[in-house]
Simulated scan of single mutants.
Amino acid sequence: MKEAHVGELVDLLDLERLEDNLFRGQSRDIGTHFVFGGQVLGQALSAAQQTVDSTREAHSLHAYFLRAGDINAPIVYNVERTRDGGTFSSRRVVAIQHGQPILNGSISFQVPEQGFEHQSSMPEVPMPEDLEPMPPLSPEQLAQLPTKIQRWLGVDTPIEFRHVWPQDRLHPTKRPPIQHVWFRVTARISDSPALHRSMLAYASDFNLIGTATLPHGISYYTDRVQMASLDHALWFHRPFRVDEWLLYSFDSPTAQGARGLARGQIFSRDGRLVASTVQEGLIRLRPDSQ
């Protein structure tokens, strides 16, 4: 079963080529009614990677989410070959549905080369084997949740998460905006670095903006809370595999104006910093009348 779900994700990121710079992708319903933002990020990166020489590796991605995606319609990715220099290549990607852009993104690629190195240290946290997966909610607990949350929790995911400091999802308490989560794809995939980068882009949208809710005692499960990703930045630093455990360390330095900012660092289990993320998201408490 795990292999089947991972295979679905691999297929999701394997886009159909319509023209030299035009690609089409399908969507997977993960229980959100709308297309998961991480899916559009991963597919946009997959499209861009198919327009550069295989010796050039993506090192940064910057994207704005413009509209909610329709899970029942395909997404077309238009790639603009902005520049190919001696060492770097730049691509602009627009994801389109129903004639409207749902994401604008810019992705930069580089020929690998040697240079100075330093990095932040990985936080001292328990290893994933020492942590228990979050237990599923009981049928009685599920019945208390809005329908949208029941759908979210009812869909199997190809990614396993283990939280260092698990949160009571139904009754969150206020706590500092810091969290650490181990994650991995639940079955072995091919050795293609491009596929691993696309999958990391997909996974990097999980738990990120939720970090900004921690000081306020709310969560995505809280009634009347509206949350959505507004933008997303991702930098790749060092080689990694998404089918091996990675530690995602989050913090949120600020929230204001119905928006929260969250940052993430992704480490391999041997302590190498392999990627960094930043995201701003909408966090809005709707009035009772809505």
Rank of each mutant, 00 (worst) to 15 (best):
V225A: 12
V185P: 00
I159F: 08
S252H: 02
R175V: 07
W182H: 09
I266D: 13
V185Y: 01
S204L: 08
L208S: 05
L195W: 08
K174Q: 15
Y248G: 04
W235E: 00
P193E: 03
R224P: 07
T222H: 09
P193A: 07
R263A: 09
V155H: 13
P239K: 01
D205H: 01
A194I: 00
I149Y: 10
S198A: 15
T211S: 05
A262Q: 05
I209A: 09
A275K: 04
D205C: 05
S192Y: 03
R169E: 02
V225F: 14
Q265C: 04
R224H: 14
P193Y: 04
V242F: 09
V185I: 12
H163R: 05
I178W: 04
F250P: 11
T157N: 13
R259G: 07
P166S: 13
S204M: 11
A255N: 05
S204Y: 08
Q226L: 15
R269H: 15
M199C: 13
D205T: 01
I218D: 03
T277W: 00
W152G: 01
R241M: 06
L208R: 05
H180A: 14
Y221K: 00
D270C: 11
S198V: 04
L246H: 11
V164C: 13
H180W: 03
H232F: 09
L273H: 14
D270K: 15
M199K: 06
T213M: 15
H171W: 06
R263Q: 13
N207D: 00
P172S: 06
R269C: 12
S204D: 03
L195C: 11
A258E: 12
M227V: 14
I218K: 07
R188K: 14
A233L: 08
P166G: 13
R259N: 10
S276T: 09
E160K: 00
R241A: 11
L170F: 07
S249F: 04
D270M: 10
Q179Y: 01
E160V: 07
D205I: 01
V242S: 09
I159S: 08
I209K: 09
G260H: 02
F236R: 00
F240V: 08
I149M: 15
Q179P: 07
H163F: 15
R169L: 11
V185Q: 02
A258P: 00
V164G: 13
I209T: 09
T211R: 05
W245N: 04
L261N: 03
D156N: 09
E160F: 07
R162T: 07
G271H: 05
I209V: 15
D191Y: 07
L261D: 03
R263Y: 11
T222D: 06
T186V: 14
L247I: 06
A187F: 01
S192C: 14
R272I: 10
T186E: 15
D205R: 04
I159P: 13
F267Y: 15
R188G: 06
P239C: 01
A203Q: 01
I149A: 13
N207Q: 12
H171C: 07
D251V: 08
D168F: 02
L246A: 08
P176K: 00
H232R: 03
L195M: 15
F236S: 07
S252A: 12
G217F: 09
S252G: 04
L234E: 00
H232C: 09
